[in-house]
């Protein structure tokens, strides 16, 4: 056995022993956290116990998160606008390429799904996707805030607040409705109203997806034995994946339905009825 092989062997043995000792200690009932998980999860959904003040109004912490996320995104956009965009090159660098890919992805999505009217749509789904993505990742930061009761609360993702999800879902529906009316007048209005379940489905899809990640995280953090290593995996699964998937899903759905309601109406040609004589029928 060479020195290198001996080193590897000893390292593996040491890691195994350490893991076993940690496991034995943590599975002792002494280290179980005595919390009411039902109350914890109910607070995560309803925010009854962790309201915060916002310009004198008592609001859910998700609203503070929303404004912070908007501030972060706009600050980033302003810095990019001032320092990066004026120095754009014809052959892009890495950061320029990322920006162009992000803008190009939603611009192309808008053009593909709604070829007749897409200027506003591209900008809207870009903003919505950026908001969902950054807002979902925001909960990984665990930004602390003082609640109305004077307790410290961790700011959640803006869309894990049902009001935030409803606002984005309804706004997307409103954008589709306005696009439909501008393109096809009453026909566009009718087409949009036909999709009456869309605001509810969009809102609750966002809320459910974001909330499920939050609840699982709460569940994991509630037990000390699960709070080692596992939160990293759970955080990646329920935060990063949701950030990408929900941003893409809302953008795609909005673009798709916007394209359907803004599609110009084409009158179908009437098929001429064939009058057959009795002799022709017999033949």
């Amino acid at each position: 056995m060479t020195k290198k092989q001996l080193g590897i062997f000893l390292t593996v043995v040491f890691v195994l022993l350490a893991a076993l000792i940690v496991g034995i200690v943590l599975t002792d009932g002494l280290y179980e956290k005595d919390v009411n998980i039902q109350e914890s999860m109910q607070d995560a959904v309803l925010h009854e116990g962790d309201k915060v003040y916002f310009f004198g109004m008592t609001v859910n912490p998700g609203l503070i998160s929303a404004y912070l996320v908007t501030g972060i995104i706009l600050l980033f956009a302003a810095l990019v606008r001032i320092f990066v965009i004026p120095h754009f090159k014809t052959i892009p660098g890495k950061f320029q390429l990322v920006l162009e890919e992000a803008v190009g992805l939603f611009d192309n999505m808008a053009k593909t799904n709604s070829p007749h009217r897409n200027n506003f749509l591209g900008a809207y789904i870009f903003a919505a996707a950026a908001y969902i993505f950054v807002g979902t990742l925001f909960e990984l930061v665990g930004f602390p805030w003082q609640s109305a009761a004077g307790m410290s609360v961790t700011l959640p993702a803006p869309l894990s607040d049902i009001n935030g999800a409803i606002s984005l879902g309804c706004l997307s529906y409103l954008v589709i409705l306005v696009g439909g009316i501008l393109s096809n007048r009453f026909r566009g209005l009718g087409r949009t109203l036909k999709e009456f379940s869309l605001p509810i489905s969009m809102s609750f899809r966002l809320f459910g997806a974001l909330l499920s990640g939050l609840l699982v995280s709460e569940l994991v953090y509630s037990y000390l034995t699960l709070s080692f290593v596992l939160p990293v995996l759970v955080g990646v699964l329920f935060t990063v994946m949701h950030a990408l998937v929900q941003a893409y899903v809302l953008a795609t759905l909005t673009a798709l339905i916007y394209g359907e309601v803004t599609e110009p109406y084409v009158k179908k040609p009437k098929q001429a009825k064939k009058h057959q004589s009795k002799s022709e029928v017999k033949a």
Binding site: T70, V80, R81, A123, A130
Partner: peptide, 11 residues
Amino acid sequence: ILFAGLWLLLY
């Protein structure tokens, strides 16, 4: 606010 800012500054 976010939409207007992103549209003007970035998109």
